[in-house]
Amino acid sequence: MTSPSDVPSAEQSQLDSSVVAALYVAHGEELRRFLLGILRDAQLTADVLQATFVKMVERGHETKEGSRKAWLFRVAYHEAMAYRRREGVGGKVLRRVAWNTSDAAGGADEPLLRLESVQSVREAMQELPPEQRQVVRMRIYEEKTFATIAKELKIPLGTALGRMRAALIKLRAQLNEPPAHDK
């Protein structure tokens, strides 16, 4: 027979709120971007993100401290896929991410985009070769497909893809760097 002291109380069966808060600060933004990549909708992303951290509160005590980030991503992934199945929406419908930053922020108090990051990328954009910068703008800003870009620029599809890929590598390298005038 189990004594009352052996049964964990509600508080003991939940992860400490300060630990969950620290996890949110550390991984919340990255997790939101990951979910947005799957769900392509800011509001759905916010809902699933909240559900994920609720699960962390409820079951986080079962996890090891070093594996909590991966646990969060795994739970978020399954929550997102379950949501998509329930709502009957798939990748074909959710073709692209809502690039609009106001949609992407989803009313959250944590901005997805930081001004310094935007400035760094903007500076990096200026340093790109013109042909790469053109493809980046057409693909991301004008939201044209690579096939359309290749057709409009009268270049092979592989060339358009190559320019985009080379540009992304440079831009990504700059993304987490401080702006040039701050160095």
Partner: peptide, 18 residues
């Protein structure tokens, strides 16, 4: 995937919001 979303949104913001 999270990095790809971040980069894409940042580039889009650099062209508009900024």
């Amino acid at each position: 995937l999270a990095r790809a979303v971040q980069l894409t949104q940042t580039v889009a913001a650099a062209e508009t919001q900024f």
